[in-house]
């Protein structure tokens, strides 16, 4: 194990970072959007919407992501109707299959987090908004969403880290992300330990930066929880996570 080899490996692994980050960004954004829609469905009064959203969340959360990924990547090709349809140029690419699987998987977890956030918005706040004459979209835009997002953000940051980690499965459907490149270097150089440790360090760095960024956003969004100007930053973060 020499330093020169580790350095070289790290440089080669850097080539995989863009695809890892792309997959993660698409999964986080797509998972959030789809998850939000599903959370709204779960909270609706309509029994069909409620039951189907509940079923979706239960099914997706109980199956491993790998099953979903292989179902989309290998399974869908079984249908000749689909193979000749306009969707095929997208579905035949491993990249989009991975994105779709990650978005579907992430949306089920995100839906539960957002549902918790939406439920945490107090009845009084909503009543006050209604008393001021807000209704429908305005009520949601001004009152419910901002409050729900503040509540859901800490939990969603864990989910974001999980999604970054989940992108490594894309290497199993031929994509050359950080894990994919690491596996190929490891098998060609017969030095698996430094290669996988270097790849792990890259993921750790990405996740640390991501967590820091979300915490900074959380700090910005919760000025009302900061005790006073002179308080130290660490005391404020403590106050930020205490449920009030």
């Amino acid at each position: 194990m020499n330093l020169e080899f580790i350095g070289q490996t790290l440089v080669t692994l850097l080539a995989g970072i863009p695809i890892t980050l792309e997959l993660a960004a698409l999964a986080i954004a797509g998972g959030a959007l789809l998850g939000f829609a599903i959370a709204l469905m779960r909270l609706s009064q309509h029994p069909f919407l409620y039951v189907s959203a509940w079923l979706y969340v239960q099914i997706i959360r109980s199956t491993p992501l790998l099953v979903l990924l292989f179902l989309i990547y290998y399974g869908l090709g079984q249908f000749s109707a689909l193979r000749s349809s306009f969707l095929w140029p997208v579905l035949k690419q491993a990249y989009w299959c991975a994105v779709i699987a990650l978005v579907i998987n992430g949306s089920a977890f995100a839906a539960e987090i957002f549902r918790g956030g939406l439920l945490s918005v107090g009845r009084k706040e909503v009543e006050a908004a209604r008393a001021c004459g807000m209704s429908g979209i305005l009520l949601y835009r001004r009152i419910v969403f901002p409050l729900a997002i503040r509540q859901a953000l800490p939990a969603y940051s864990n989910e974001m880290v999980a999604m970054v980690k989940a992108t490594s499965l894309a290497s199993l459907v031929t994509l050359m992300d950080v894990t994919g490149i690491a596996a190929s270097i490891a098998s060609s150089t017969y030095q698996p330990i430094p290669v996988f440790v270097a790849a792990g360090a890259i993921y750790l760095l990405i996740n640390t930066l991501l967590t820091r960024a979300v915490r900074a956003l959380e700090y910005r969004l919760t000025p009302h929880l900061r005790p006073a100007q002179y308080a130290t930053a660490s005391a404020v973060t403590e106050a930020g996570v205490t449920p009030t």
Binding site: V161, S168, A186, P192, I193, F196, G200, L204
Partner: peptide, 23 residues
């Protein structure tokens, strides 16, 4: 806890499986 919660499971599996052979 910090390291193992920030690294993909698949990488750890690869590390143990392929790494064990080199050790």
């Amino acid at each position: 806890t910090t390291i193992l919660r920030g690294v993909p499971e698949l990488l750890v599996i690869f590390l143990f499986y392929f790494g064990s052979s080199s050790v």
